[in-house]
Amino acid sequence: MTGFFALIAREIRLSTRRGGEALTLVMFFVMVTALFPFAVGPDRELLARLAPGIVWTSALLAMLLGLDRIFRDDHADGSLALLNHGQLPLEAVVGAKVIAHWLLTALPLIVATPVLAVLLGMDVEGWGRSALSLLCGTPALTGLGVLGAATTAGLRRGGLVAPILILPLAVPVLIFGVAAAEGGILAPTLFLLAISLLTCALSPFLGALALRAGDD
């Protein structure tokens, strides 16, 4: 178990030393959101109505941006080969990556949502619903993202392939996420949680399978 937590701690340490990747991601998230008013006009009512969709689209794009770093470096410098010789099974390694990736990409985005709420003119309740829906839905995006990164870990130009692979699979998350953020009924939130649980439970095993398949 020490290895598991050491791996999470190392991911976080590497990310912060490499020039605050989490911060860059948050900037991307806020900037994409700020693009919408330029595209659809700064009409406050329109923006407030679109806000859940805008927040979720920006979050999805920002999560895709961070995929590349999950396995690429570890594969290239041999860390992955060595981790395969650790006491942890590869599944646990992928599980640790899922947790670390959520902490390093999804959590900062959720923390940054108040800024978006101000920019998009959401009220406190609307912001709360959006943040809650992100909290319930981002684990699914993380799990899918790790799977995409695992399948493309050994490819030199996998950077673009992983998002293409993931985007169609993320559509359900987007549908229920926006529905949950718009509020009213409980069902979408429960669906969102179900998708997240399922994805997070399966991704370590499927991810390890993909890494092993790509190893030879």
């Binding site: 701690a9 590497l14 570890d74 410098d77 041999g78 860390s79 060595l82 010789h85 006491q87 942890l88």
Partner: peptide, 30 residues
């Protein structure tokens, strides 16, 4: 695999970790 050490030209060194952090991590893993 958990009985073996592997040493190859790919040293798995992360430039931004200190030497003691590197060793502490691999000790936790191995």
């Amino acid at each position: 695999q958990a009985l073996m050490h592997l040493l190859s030209h790919r040293t798995a060194i992360k430039p931004r970790l200190t030497l003691s952090e590197d060793l502490a991590f691999w000790q936790a893993v191995n």
